[in-house]
Nucleic acid binder design. Sequence first.
DNA 1: CCAACCTGATAGGTGTCATCTATAATGGCA
DNA 2: TGCCATTATAGATGACACCTATCAGGTTGG
Lengths: 301, 301
Amino acid sequence: MNLRDLRYLLAVAEHEHFGRAAEACGVSQPTLSVQLRKLEELLGVTLFERGSKTVAATAACKLLIGHARVAVAEVDAMLAVARSLHDPLAGRFRLGIIPTLAPYLLPLIFAPLREALPALEVEPWEDQTSVLLKRLRAHELDAALLATEVDGPDLASKPLFAEPFLAALPPEHPLAERAVVAEADLAPDILVLAEGHCLRDQALEACGRSGALGSTLRAASLSTLLNMVAAGYGTTLLPGLAAGAAQDAGIVLRPLAAQAGRTVRVAWRVSFPRRAALDAVGEVIAARLRGFAEGAAAGTI
Amino acid sequence: MNLRDLRYLLAVAEHEHFGRAAEACGVSQPTLSVQLRKLEELLGVTLFERGSKTVAATAACKLLIGHARVAVAEVDAMLAVARSLHDPLAGRFRLGIIPTLAPYLLPLIFAPLREALPALEVEPWEDQTSVLLKRLRAHELDAALLATEVDGPDLASKPLFAEPFLAALPPEHPLAERAVVAEADLAPDILVLAEGHCLRDQALEACGRSGALGSTLRAASLSTLLNMVAAGYGTTLLPGLAAGAAQDAGIVLRPLAAQAGRTVRVAWRVSFPRRAALDAVGEVIAARLRGFAEGAAAGTI
DNA sequence: CCAACCTGATAGGTGTCATCTATAATGGCA
DNA sequence: TGCCATTATAGATGACACCTATCAGGTTGG
């Protein structure tokens, strides 16, 4: 059975005339006659009584037509929905973001995203890299903003912008008097985030310390870490976008000698079909952050 | 778009696996792949994300699947209804019956009809011949029991049984003393039904009177007519099946010399598709009335 | 690290079938 | 009785759903 046949059925029932029904369906009258007869044979039911001048739906036909009408209407509704879904730049876009980035990046990009992609409902999801990757692979996210490369043939990524690190120091810290701080000088009393945060590994690597930290304090969030630095517990390496929050906390920021930093990337499943939305979101973010690295590295924040 | 495609869509969404979905649909995997890709092109929407090991429905697909499910379910329901309608001996059967027949025939045939055709809901409709024919042609009746032939190429009929007329006389009427009454003897004081009843014309013809009756009384129903005869207003020609009612009213019945009578026929549209039901109903009625004519004509009622 | 697998995509061939035009059959009507 | 309207039939044709065979990519296990 074919949907077309149901449309023919409804047309003949409505017009009570094969010729006009055929015209309404855009086919020839013989086509309609043949197809309708086939439908009758398939159903095992006489659908229409053909008189010399009249075509009348049988009682059986009237029973069946109700179902046919609903079925055709549903398919039409489906086509309509599909048409409204044509635009890849519309609909929900679930974007994972790592915790050391989300609070500082989101305020910057929300407005540009809404302006550039008004039909796209960007839904942020904050979690650590490994969780984001898991959710991304599970189709629970459409893309993720990370500070690491991704591996595996099912995922791909591209860099959006470079984010320099800054030395974050308590005001009374000896290093605060220097204009530029060498990464290695931070090593002795550096504070880092809890395990799982990519920033933790990157900070340790930048200042040349191994992973074995002993009793070093570990903060659960970048906000907590800043509070600890401000309280004089030690120093840290801060992502450039968090500079504003650090200064508000009374922390002294200094550019780094070797210009350590991280690259924020957008990652996605290679099979993800809405590449247009993906690229558009990436471009909006990259455009918003363009020139950020130079300014931050030069200390002109 | 084809219903088949919707079934494929639902199968893949359910199994999340092209091979197994194809098996469930009874087609090869390439067929399913090709058809689904075509559906995606038709809808302009990517329905599934194909990973190396996974097939996941996109958000758009989930929106569309709801409609597809309803449409397919409706079509299946339609097929189920059609199957249950296969039996032509089932369902409503609207049977027109003329007023001079209905009250006397229906009590005889209801039980046999119910026994022989339990799935057939016979729905009687009582009206005069012309009205019945109009309703029959308008598809408001499936068949009609008449005492006349039908004409026109759109209608057909066949005789079911012969119904002799009887002379109906007041007990004190002179003719009541005869064993057999000649039709012409009833003419002087015959009472007939109102115009439009076929029995009126047949009674008048049988007793040799012209249509011009002058001030002759006319009854609206056979029941009224019997009351009038019983009250001594005159005589009448009575259809055999009404004999019981007449005797209950205290009327004297006599066989007719020329054995005037009428033939009850079933009429239908030649295009009426449920010939099986029609023939079955006719046969039940004919069987029930078989032998009636001889008994009635012989006065052994 | 490579071979065997699993899975979906692609290619070429084939048969079915929806569709067309042309024409017949039927009945109504003047 | 011939003309109009309507549906049914016939034969031809093109589209397309389907198949088998094969490819391509990714995973897995020895």
